[in-house]
Design a protein around this nucleic acid. Sequence first.
DNA 1: ACCTGAACACCGTTCAAGT
DNA 2: ACCTGAACACCGTTCAAGT
Lengths: 215, 215
Amino acid sequence: MGTKQTLTPEDWIKAAFKLLTSSGPKAIRVDYLCKELGVTKGSFYWHFADLAALQAAMVEHWRRVATSDVIASMVSPELSPRDLFIRFIEDILDVPTREYGGPMTEVAIRHWAAGDEAVHAVVRNADTERLAFLTLQMRGSGLTGPEARSRATLIYATLVGLKQLTGEPGLPRMDIPGFVDAMLRPAPSNAAAVQAALVASATPVRCPEPQLEVQ
Amino acid sequence: MGTKQTLTPEDWIKAAFKLLTSSGPKAIRVDYLCKELGVTKGSFYWHFADLAALQAAMVEHWRRVATSDVIASMVSPELSPRDLFIRFIEDILDVPTREYGGPMTEVAIRHWAAGDEAVHAVVRNADTERLAFLTLQMRGSGLTGPEARSRATLIYATLVGLKQLTGEPGLPRMDIPGFVDAMLRPAPSNAAAVQAALVASATPVRCPEPQLEVQ
DNA sequence: ACCTGAACACCGTTCAAGT
DNA sequence: ACCTGAACACCGTTCAAGT
């Protein structure tokens, strides 16, 4: 009743992301997937030619939802540049992860890419595409060409880096609107100052006292 | 008689490099190694705990002969800075490869590193070590701190890049002494000019007319 | 000490047969 | 159309037995 009769490729991809984020790239295995979905191996090979095909589909899916789809959803012209930036950044870092491997999909993909050149190539493409879009928007906000590019690079690198740290407890939470405002200010062009603005605007999460294991 | 009775770890490492350079990282397999050496699999596991141990030994061997050993052989103070540079570059790019996988070991290792994070980490360390040494020597030749570092980086990146292209036919052959002379000139500090000096001093190998496949 | 030979383990892949 | 179940293939690893 509540259970679906037939599996779709999306079911396999979703299960594979779950394995990726929970147990790493090497956990993307046919038997694990089948256990997760309650079927036997033969079923997998009806949907995919081989494991490489599923992996390619995973990466391509990620590329679409975490890059092209987000960019495409931005072309509605009612957004101010500032709001567009905020939404883009929040979407890139969070939206595509909701349905699949949880909030750490982006980090898991980059970890996977470190050991798989095919994955790495797609991640590079995604970075390029996102950066080109951010640069274009920066330029549309009145910044000059090189300035637009360098600010876009800085903002993107900073946020990707912070996202990596999000896994650890006691992370600083980032104030994305405040950061965007600092990045859009035309004058100072001072990377260090902008970086300082981000750090200053980051509200540290309540940091629990370090607990010693006392019994 | 002419054949050795007993295999050494070095024999396995050498055979593994042969497989790496001829057929890529995935060809480093126990059965291939055994066929190459004329023994059975059990022999391998007497010498190494597992395949990962052999791979680690390969990378560590490369790191030693292609980095630390070359640097250590340079501390004899009879060399002029210019000759030291020339010898270092030639040794780094050629010497460590003679005994093992031929002249393309450096390229093969970097290709391997693209798909294996453990290998990649060692390559990064080697690059850092080589660059630190080159920078130090630049500084000893009268260049200022930042200038020494940027020139060392440029020279190293250029030569690594050219080495990658060496595999293809019709390569430009590089005039290392001429390049070093250009890099040691203190004044202009112009990266593009130095780059031009290298390209100008590269004597193109006889470039055959493009042959159309006419039958 | 060094190696053989055979077995085992693991996991991707195939395929005839079911519904 | 979608899946089961069992077999096979591939290759890393183990180990008792040889010299």
